[in-house]
Amino acid sequence: GSHDSFSFYIDEASPVGPEQPETVQNFVSVFGTVAKKLMRKWLATQTMNFTSQLGAGIRYFDLRISTKPRDPDNELYFAHGLFSAKVKEGLEEINAFLADHPKEVVFLDFNHFYGMQKYHHEKLVQMLKDTYGNKMCPAIFAHEVSLQYLWEKEHQVLVFYHSPVALEVPFLWPGQMMPAPWANTTDPEKLIQFLQASITERRKKGSFFISQVVLTPKASTVVKGVASGLRETITERALPAMMQWVRTQKPGESGVNIITADFVELGDFISTVIKLNYDLDEGEDDTT
Rank of each mutant, 00 (worst) to 15 (best):
Y278Q: 10
H80M: 08
Y149K: 14
S207P: 06
K68Y: 03
A219T: 14
G267D: 04
A180H: 07
S52Y: 04
N184M: 12
G225M: 07
W42R: 05
Q46M: 02
D187M: 09
E152F: 11
L147I: 10
S52E: 14
M127Y: 07
M242F: 04
A197C: 10
V214P: 07
S228K: 14
D73C: 10
F50E: 08
G81V: 09
E144V: 06
F8P: 03
L54E: 00
S29G: 05
P102M: 11
F208C: 04
N277Y: 06
N257Y: 10
D281Y: 05
V159G: 05
T131Q: 02
I210L: 14
I274S: 11
T45L: 00
V165P: 01
T47D: 05
G90H: 08
H80A: 02
D281H: 10
E152Y: 12
Q148C: 13
M242P: 06
K88R: 14
S271I: 03
T216R: 12
P72M: 07
F160K: 00
M177V: 05
I258G: 05
P179A: 14
D4R: 07
P18C: 10
K86W: 06
M48F: 04
P21Y: 02
F50L: 00
F97S: 01
F171K: 01
V16S: 02
D268F: 02
E93G: 04
V157D: 08
T185V: 09
E253G: 12
F269C: 06
D71L: 00
F97P: 00
E89S: 11
V106F: 05
Q176A: 11
K204L: 15
V165A: 01
Y114S: 03
I234S: 06
E189V: 15
G283D: 09
Y161C: 06
D279R: 15
R203M: 14
D109E: 09
L43Y: 09
L195G: 02
T233Y: 01
H112M: 04
A166D: 10
D281K: 12
I199V: 15
L230E: 06
L124C: 02
V30S: 12
W42C: 03
F209S: 09
E92I: 11
V165G: 01
L43P: 03
Q212A: 13
K204W: 10
V165T: 13
V226R: 11
E236M: 12
T23A: 14
T186N: 12
E122H: 15
S29L: 10
I199D: 08
T221L: 03
L124Q: 09
A197H: 06
G252H: 07
N257L: 02
G225L: 03
K205I: 13
T47H: 01
D4Y: 12
E144D: 15
T186M: 09
F83H: 12
G32V: 03
S5C: 05
F113I: 03
Y132G: 12
T23W: 15
H121A: 07
L266I: 05
I259N: 00
K37R: 13
Q244I: 08
